[in-house]
Design a protein around this nucleic acid. Structure first.
Lengths: 335, 335
DNA sequence: GCTGCGCATGGAAACGATTACATCGGTCAT
DNA sequence: ATGACCGATGTAATCGTTTCCATGCGCAGC
């Protein structure tokens, strides 16, 4: 591959001049600039970003560590992030943590080793050494969707609490009294928030949330299946299940299918995070939708602010309930 | 961030020695090595991969350009690719082409600018200048799932033709005679293959494939919706629709839903690429499943072979039909 | 006819690593 | 005692850029 020297030689100028026209600095004679440009295209020269970044100490690259690529919510987020970043002249390197702390930290380190300009992360459950080090190092960093308590990092997310409250009201109105929830990993901030909101909404209706009705999940399909299994081994199984993400809802459906149980006749089902398929499942699934795209855009905006030396604050958007048939029929969903 | 010089200084050795222990070259006294190692950890030093790659001319990074992150088939593929690559000590940078030639070429260029060691791509429809240039430059490269005619690049894919033939037989046995197909972009190799297999299978049963029953899609949801719309504007709409990917099948379902049509009573539906949700849609959707994980693993194996100077050949795996209720009931699906 | 200034350009140092080659004791065979 | 060799380490060139500083030139002001 041709280097800047080759271009310089062919244009009959020094490398400094080539560099100047490439980064369009002023003070290059128009005719010289033209000569350089033709040399560039004749050699189909492309600058080596490694060398450039090494010298300038910036990569114009953002790192994005997501919890699970197989989760449609995160792929949609990733898509939005990449779009926004590209619009601002950054590229994005995605790391998939697969909900594992160790894999997350592996990616964070790899990303830092590449000297990315900033890091966008929706942290997995648990205490991440890599993330804490990064924060200490002063790497520009923004949390999206999930966060880590005690770290002073801007956070872009949707507050799901009001929507959870709406969901409980909806379930109550449909006559459900034994409501269960499937959580994410124990220390997951989003999941905990959803559980607390769920519990306090139940309280408003005078309903308890027995421990047996709290299924411990990990945001992945298999855990939804297992939690459902445990619910149905109970002497008195719940009559409605709220999965705190869409993959666990999928797991619940798989379990119901093997048991031959019907939704919503035998049990109701609702999920956090709306995805296109929920409209076409049997039955369509009631879900709480987040403004995923905007989450991605806002996160990139915040991060680039940080990277470019401006300040950035947290952003909280809101989520809303979309009632479908999986919780039973009411005046809104019946037609 | 600490550099190799800082480590050298603290350990009281030269940078050469530090480099030697870092890359565990032989010929360093055990005691020196230990001193260096403690210096490394005390400073929590991490080598700058930019500098390293610049010097060694290798990044231990693979580029993966996929057609559409929102397509579960590709995210599963990406996941498998990343796993396999990590297992071999490579990391992966993903570019999402969003089925657009220009975006694909943008990513290919960006990836090459980063001096990735090899490129894995499932090319979008059309003539890609960037890809051809890369091939000419001799960049190690492997196609996965899709390919470009006339480029001599190893290809890892699943041959869907026998499965398509099975699908047609299945539909025929269920009494369907007016079979329609929704294709991908015009020049898409996989889509064309599927159409040809579909047409010749129809021929075996003495059935025609009128142009009106060929819906022009682009592998994305909206195009499935539009193709279905056109089918139902026909004086005699098809009684079975085969979407050549899962997102277009989603689009068809959306369209059917707005028209109030039922599957399979009013029309049957089948898709290429099986995804977990197909089991839970209303009704469950008949699909042709590819061995996605293995596709990813084999592709990485082939690419790393190339990168590391070995030779690599194409790989063809097979896909198989999974009959569900969306095409009607037969002895296999009824129970 | 100098001096000084600004403009266009070139020379060379840096970025942080790797690595070919040089150096320096020490050991061993002669 | 001498020289060859070996093992451990250091010196410095190098990768492909950017950028600070120097240089040379023409021109205006005196």
């Amino acid at each position: 591959m041709a280097g800047i020297k080759d271009v310089a030689a062919r244009a009959g100028v020094s490398v400094a001049t080539v560099s100047r026209v490439l980064n369009d600095h002023s003070g290059v004679r128009e005719e010289t600039r033209a000569r350089v440009l033709t040399a560039v295209s004749e050699l189909s020269y492309r600058p080596n970003t490694l060398a450039r970044s090494l010298r300038t100490d910036q990569t114009r690259t953002l790192g994005l560590v997501i919890s699970d690529v197989l989760n449609p919510f995160f792929t949609e987020l990733a898509r939005a992030v990449e779009d926004a970043a590209r619009g601002r002249g950054y590229s994005v390197i995605i790391g998939n943590a697969d909900e594992q702390l160790s894999l997350q930290d592996h990616h964070v380190r790899t990303l830092l080793d590449r000297r990315i300009d900033g890091l966008l992360v929706s942290p997995a459950d648990g205490d991440s050494v890599a993330l804490r080090e990064a924060a200490l190092l002063g790497i520009p960093m923004v949390f999206v969707d999930r966060w880590i308590e005690g770290l002073d990092i801007p956070l872009v997310r949707a507050d799901g609490r009001p929507a959870v409250r709406d969901l409980v009201a909806h379930l109550y109105a449909l006559g459900h009294r034994r409501l269960a929830i499937i959580t994410g990993p124990v220390a997951s901030t989003t999941s905990n928030e959803r559980v607390r909101a769920f519990r306090s909404a139940l309280l408003e209706h005078g309903l308890p949330l027995p421990d047996a009705y709290i299924g411990q999940g990990d945001f992945q399909t298999a855990s939804g299946r297992q939690a459902a299994e445990r619910f149905f081994a109970l002497p008195q199984p719940p009559d409605a299940i709220f999965a705190t993400d869409n993959l666990m809802a999928l797991g619940v459906m798989e379990q119901l299918r093997t048991r031959g149980l019907r939704v919503p006749q035998d049990v109701s089902l609702a999920a956090f995070d709306d995805i296109p398929w929920f409209l076409h499942t049997d039955p369509p699934i009631t879900a709480i939708a987040q403004p995923t795209q905007e989450l991605g855009h806002r996160a990139v905006a915040a991060l680039t602010d940080l990277v470019e030396g401006r300040s950035a604050g947290s952003v909280t958007l809101s989520a809303h309930l979309i009632a479908r048939r999986s919780c039973g029929e009411d005046e809104r969903t019946r037609r």
